[in-house]
Design a protein around this nucleic acid. Sequence first.
DNA 1: CTGTTAGCGCTTTCAA
DNA 2: TTGAAAGCGCTAACAG
Lengths: 344, 344
Amino acid sequence: MVTIKDVAQKAGVTPATVSMALNGKPSISVETRRRIERIASQLGYVPSATAKTLRTSRSHTLGLIVGNLTNGFFLDIIYAVEEYASSRGYSIFICDAERSSDKVVSSMKALAARGVDGVIITLGFYPDGKLEEEVRRISSEGIKVLTLTSAAQFDGVPIVRQGETDEALALVEKVCSLGHRRIGLLSSPRDSWLNRTRVNTMRRALELNGVLDEDLVDYCEMNVDAGQKCAFDLLSRHPEITAVMCVNDQVAIGAMNAARCIGLDIPGEISITGFDGIEMSRIITPHLTTVHIPRYEMGLVGCRNIIEWIENPDARIPGETLISSTFVEGQTLGICRDAKEDKK
Amino acid sequence: MVTIKDVAQKAGVTPATVSMALNGKPSISVETRRRIERIASQLGYVPSATAKTLRTSRSHTLGLIVGNLTNGFFLDIIYAVEEYASSRGYSIFICDAERSSDKVVSSMKALAARGVDGVIITLGFYPDGKLEEEVRRISSEGIKVLTLTSAAQFDGVPIVRQGETDEALALVEKVCSLGHRRIGLLSSPRDSWLNRTRVNTMRRALELNGVLDEDLVDYCEMNVDAGQKCAFDLLSRHPEITAVMCVNDQVAIGAMNAARCIGLDIPGEISITGFDGIEMSRIITPHLTTVHIPRYEMGLVGCRNIIEWIENPDARIPGETLISSTFVEGQTLGICRDAKEDKK
DNA sequence: CTGTTAGCGCTTTCAA
DNA sequence: TTGAAAGCGCTAACAG
């Protein structure tokens, strides 16, 4: 491996001079700089980031902790973060939280030991106290922490989150305006973040429309299989349901499968809505009506913010950044079948 | 930040002793070790991985370069690699190749500068000479390189690849055995890796069965939209086609959408096959008949092999590891409609 | 069993 | 404009 010494020797100068020349310090004569640059590239010299980090306590690396790597939801975030970071000369450590606060804490310890300049945390579950404690600890070591999405939120830690409340409300209004009164609600587990936020918003909106029926609310894990099973049960118990609103797209796709099993036409006999706007939602037939969460933009903005903060610790970056979601018109929403019958 | 010196001072010993104690060297008295451990954890001491790396030239980090992060195909690999690596105390740098050899080369340079112990490369496209050169360079620096999947393959570089030839042949046999004679083939672009390997295998099998018709072969990008467009064209031009075999699941899902547009029942009037066994293939209705590539196992084995190699450079790890794919019985394969008519 | 010493590759004063 | 020297935090010889 060729080091700064080798370059210095061959150029007939000291390592210090090479360092300054290659780092664009102005106090080096153009002539020597040229010579050093030539020799460096000739020797294939690549400065050791490790040594640089040890000396400067700046590593140009970031940690990215995602809630659960098997969930395609996080893919766009990883993509955006990696893309922007690498364009700024940063490398990304990827860590899977495996839905557990403990794993997040151990990941953060590892990242801190490796000297990352910052950590981006994006979880889909509520973190426990241990995590908050660790966030404090590494912050006090000078490591910048930023959270994406709002399940994990800490005092003084900047957050980039999706604005989705208006869209959730609008979605309910849309369903109601089509004449639906018996509306099933497939939520995530009772103590989950999304049940307490997103689904609760929908619940309140249903209530305002006078169509909330807790018997028609069910709770399931957020994957296709669970959604299918849960929707099947719900629709079997309550055949009067004409629309099912789901906590996310995976559950909604499960619900679509269930409806198909039962022989209900979508959207002729039953309407279905999702949430998130994952890739699959626009690929399946009929296309799912959903709300698209701007994951790419969130990743981009989050990464840009934390790098800005790292490189300019005095510049206060926004404590909270809201990025709007967008309604996605699919083909799973139709006029209530009862309303149609009434017309006949 | 608390360093080894702080611990040493508080324990009344030298840094060297602390280092040995914490690294489980046998030459330390149980008593001192206990004391040091206690003080270390009390002070919240976390050894600097950076300093350790500089000193030992072992970083316990790996680079993972994936062909294209937006493709869900790679998700299971990332998951497996991260999971296994972190269980062994390694952290993962994730890099997106963005379908370009140049980006891969610059990623490798960055990874090498950061002192990674190894690099896992998994690409879906043919690399150019520059990449091979860079692989040689970092190998000569002692960085271990391993490739996953076979698009990128270099002399002397261990590879973990899927065994899929038998399954591709079996798939063709299956289709033919159902009576199909007019079989469309949706391949990836002509000069792409999969066209030259996987699709070519299918092509030869079709030929052996005497049903290869180059007019029924088309080439498209490997995504749902392209697949849909291409399938629509093909089926419009050749309504006699009764089965479409696709280079991968995305294209197959596109083909399913196209068939539905045209009003063809799957599998009643047209059969469709995919390849890869991505999550979506078993979620859509009807489930796609495909071949599942064991991405998780590949990632696991690849990661295990490279770590073994790193930690024991003399132990020769297998130069080529083949992991079998599996046929996935879906609902998109049916008896040829012509055959059925004959029966009537 | 523990201390001393040297040095990994780099940057950053301070002198010259 | 460049050189000399110190040191980031750690480990590995070698002494004692």
